[in-house]
Design a protein around this nucleic acid. Structure first.
Length: 550
RNA sequence: GCCCCCGUAGCUCAGUUGGAUAGAGCAGCAGUUUCCUAAACUGUUGGCCGGAGGUUCGAUUCCUCUCGGGGGCACCA
């Protein structure tokens, strides 16, 4: 239990003596204005109705009922409409660093997930081309969310769902075929809905090199398999360059070959939520909040195929059956309409899947800017900018950070010039630099940072305002991690990193670690080590490197 | 027409689940380097939180309406 939690518990205890309910959880927060103390609580206002007393009366009674020294509070006051402001004494606060250095690998971790399994699905691209910037945002978000869940005690699997069936794959095959025929001397005829990127030509060339006997390009299934394999490999390389690793890959095509789609459809028929109309099979999704019913199986006149959300439902059934009590899908906002349908299908099956399953994290579109203009075209992909383009332009760390510094539901402008600039305007370097500076202290002092310990160090000398500020910032981290994980919002970590880097730079600039009196140096080495560990932990959650020098 | 997201400083955006005088970066202005990295630090200018109602001790935050931007609304995926 850290200082804040100890304080919270003491407030709750005091509140109960005044008649607050047993499960009362006080809200405590760091006031914006430092003159309002280190921590503040609004409980006196929130309890007015339940207790039938005025806020300031309650505040006064709370202060009397609390054992302040036991939780390290050096002073407390009532302010404004009834806020209680608390101030810790310097030594008590600094002692918060002790557990941090004692167990650096688990500091910031918690166990609210209790080891339960969760599948985080992201990227899930069609194997029809290189990954585009939207996939990049998903990769960054999905990976960071997965890590956040791991840090809060969940047993996470990162899953990639391959949409390797359906119309788009057929168009891919035909596009390759058109290129193969072109190589054979025929005029180029890429079909409607086909793919025009440069990579199609490369695949066709590779195919021809391996199949000299198929110059006519009539063996469509062989070409399709070849193209899908080539693009899966290419996407793997994109993900590798981005530093993302998946635990499981699930192929849409397998849902057809193992009969799951058919089984799901007959189960839905049995559920009574389907009906036929004009030759098509409908699912009554309106029973589950949709604004109109959706076609599951097209009429014979339209080809008689299943629509896309049917395999999607079958796929999510497998997640449930594979033991994932929780599933999170990271997708672009253009998939918004599917969420209601998939959930409706799962509910219609009536097999005990919870209502909000799966959870969706939808992100808005990304606009790439370069040289003051929108960048729309990639040499390789043609019609869109690829993840690889971004990585080549600004590097993996900057790409990840820029995707994670904004919350997913705001539209993102990715400014390549800013991300590439190695200057004060670039937050990635700002944060990494703070980490490198802490490492620099140990390097110059010829000290192995991992040997720094709080044992027999008097931390009460860390009493400068810049030191107190930095310590408080560091002690916030575990709560920030929990909040970010609970809300699936990695940008909170990015914000914390930036604030912590600022506090670190300020402290570094104002105070020296090496060459001070021994007691000071030893205490400041502890703070430098804690800062290094904290920054590196935050960077790790976001999937960024923590360089020791820059 | 219906659904979702967004609207906060000149620009890009935070805002800790409803708190105190709304914050940061950049841009602008004025400073700091015999010192562990100046990729840094310090000070300063800049606001009708799109608008109107409502909920309550208290609203940038929640509700309704409205204006503006983006996305989605097929027997496409």
């Amino acid at each position: 239990m850290n200082q804040a939690e100890a304080l919270r518990a003491e407030i709750a205890r005091a509140a109960r003596t005044l008649g607050a309910p047993d499960d009362f959880v006080p809200l405590i927060e760091r006031p914006r204005d430092p003159s309002h103390g280190d921590w503040a609580t609004n409980v006196a206002m929130t309890l007015t109705k339940q207790l039938g007393r005025k806020p300031r009366d309650i505040a006064d009674a709370l202060l009397r009922a609390m054992d302040l020294p036991s939780v390290g509070v050096s002073s407390a006051e009532i302010a404004g409409p009834g806020f209680l402001n608390f101030r810790f004494d310097a030594a008590f606060l600094a002692n918060g660093l002790v557990p941090m250095l004692a167990s650096p690998d688990t500091w910031g971790h918690s166990d609210s997930g209790k080891g339960a399994r969760v599948a985080v699905e992201f990227v899930s691209a069609n194997p029809t081309g290189p990954l585009h910037v939207g996939h990049g945002r998903q990769a960054a978000l999905g990976d960071a969310i997965s890590t956040l869940l791991e840090w809060t005690g969940w047993n996470v699997d990162r899953e990639f769902y391959y949409n390797d069936a359906g119309v788009q794959i057929a168009n891919l095959a035909k596009s390759v075929q058109a290129r193969v025929r072109e190589i054979g001397g025929a005029p180029l005829a890429i079909p409607e809905g086909g793919y025009h990127g440069e990579y199609i030509r490369e695949i066709a060339e590779a195919y021809v090199a391996q199949h000299a006997d198929d110059r006519e390009g009539y063996d469509l299934p062989a070409m399709q398999a070849f193209a899908v394999a080539a693009l899966r490999h290419e996407q793997d390389l994109d993900l590798q360059a981005f530093g993302v690793q998946f635990d499981t890959y699930y192929l849409e095509s397998s849902l057809y070959t193992d009969g799951r789609v058919d089984r799901t459809v007959s189960a839905l028929r049995d559920s009574g939520y389907t009906y036929e109309e004009e030759g098509a099979l409908f699912l009554r999704t309106t029973s589950f909040g949709d604004d109109k019913d959706r076609v599951m199986k097209k009429s014979a006149a339209k080809g008689g195929d299943y629509t896309y959300f049917v395999p999607d439902v079958a796929y999510h059934v497998t997640k449930w059956e594979r033991g994932y009590g929780r599933a999170i899908d990271v997708q672009g906002a253009d998939h918004h309409s599917t969420t209601t349908r998939v959930r409706a299908g799962l509910q219609a099956l009536g097999i005990g899947i919870p209502k909000g399953y799966p959870e969706y994290v939808l992100h808005q579109m990304v606009t790439v800017m370069k040289g003051g203009e929108e960048m729309k075209i990639s040499k390789r992909a043609g019609a869109y900018v690829t993840v690889r383009d971004l990585i080549d332009e600004v590097g993996r760390d900057a790409v990840r950070y820029f995707f994670l510094m904004r919350k997913g539901d705001s539209q993102l402008v990715f400014d390549i010039d800013l991300a590439r600039s190695q200057s004060e305007e670039n937050p990635v370097y700002y944060v990494q630099m703070a980490h490198a500076r802490m490492c620099g202290i140990f390097r110059v002092g010829e000290i192995d940072a991992s040997t720094v310990t709080t044992e027999s160090v008097d931390l009460s000398v860390l009493s400068e305002p810049a030191e107190q500020e930095l310590i408080k910032q560091l002690l916030d981290f575990p709560a920030i991690v929990r909040g970010a994980a609970d809300n699936l919002e990695p940008q909170r970590i990015a914000g914390w990193l930036f604030e912590t880097a600022r506090a670190a730079h300020t402290w570094y600039h104002k105070h020296h670690v090496l060459g001070e009196p021994e007691a000071i140096t030893r205490a400041r080495l502890v703070l430098a080590r804690a800062t290094q560990l904290g920054l590196s932990a935050g960077l790790r959650i976001l999937g960024l490197s923590a360089p020791e020098r820059m």
